[in-house]
Amino acid sequence: MNIIVCIKQVPNTTDVKIDPVTNTLIRDGVESVINPFDVYAIEEGVRLKERFGGKVTVITMGPPQAESALREAISVGCDEAVLVSDRKFAGSDTWATSYTLSCAIKKLGEFDIILCGKQASDGDTAQVGPGISTHLDIPQVTYVKKIEKIENGKAVVERMTEEGYDILETPMPCLFTVVKEINTPRMPSLKGMMRAKSAQIVKWTAADIDCDPQSIGLDGSPTRVVRIFTPPPRKGGEIIKGDAAQVSQELVQLLKDIVI
């Protein structure tokens, strides 16, 4: 089975700072790590390889330093790694990013499953995974919490919902975005770390992946960020005390006041 895992390198912080002028992430001085949700995608890819055989190729689009994220993925069991990196990709929104990644994936050749984390911890859009499947015109299942069965070119998975989960069957090849409930990622092994250190990372630029120059980078990005702001924190609730009849009357009045 050919498994592709798409990852992103993100700043290692939950407190993301935004440059007020350019509206982009401030990465200076913050250590970069693999997007936490992508770590589960990597683990699931390696587990699928252990269950069904085959190989796991990990791919990222990013600056040259994203190479360290790819090496880390190799240290926990991925076989090959591709870094898609070019100044021309700068300023990509989720549309251009997913287009670029889909071009690189096409170049990789045949595959059975693409795995992504459900979203990145910096942008939080959750759009790149679905975007890739759209560009490749393959089925997608988001928020996968379990890959139950893979046989006869079909996969049965559990998709997490707010109330529980759906069980879905999809033809392959397909793309899944995974949630953290899907597995417990392993620690790297020393042998894996040594392999990662000496592994050859394939590096592709825009010229290597047969992409439309108008569809990549800032030019290929229809999104214009006007302003980024943190929504004000919710005010604390109010607890109404007293006997049931009185409390319910008070509650109804309060609801009327805020005009539902």
Partner: peptide, 10 residues
């Protein structure tokens, strides 16, 4: 160094 990094992580 690799051994140190890994054992520290664990």
């Amino acid at each position: 160094k690799m051994i140190q990094e890994l054992s520290r992580k664990i």
